[in-house]
Amino acid sequence: MKYLYTVRGDDFARAGKASTEFKHVLSQLGIDPAVIKHSSVAMYEAEINMVIHAGGGVAEADLSPERVLITMRDRGPGIPDIDLAMTEGYSTAPEWIRELGFGAGMGLPNMRRNADELKVESVVGEGTTVTILIRLPTAGEGK
């Protein structure tokens, strides 16, 4: 099952709506609570980054019995140094974003912490695609 969300980049108050909606889909489907939490945090951080840095984008969530696969695509400025961006505490967010409770340089590290696999592909001047994979526990196995 695929779920598509448009992430608007012009209204910070709406940032996180896609993640919230997908979380409620997962809850209704009775998905493992740990998987829901990991998916929600990783997707929310990616969505916030999209709004702060890229003027919005598209979020696609694909659910199969084995995994949740979230793909976040934007046409923003891109990330020049992905290793540096993955460093906890490193941030290029403007001051007003920090006043709103974000931009602490925890976004990508939080995604990495919650994803079983995280892929960040970026081309400067073209955009960034973040792919987050979270495996569902098989029968009788907790995450």
Partner: peptide
Amino acid sequence: GLVNPQAIRTADLLD
């Protein structure tokens, strides 16, 4: 001390 909708949204996402 953060009073904006993101505080509620973050809490909601984390149950």
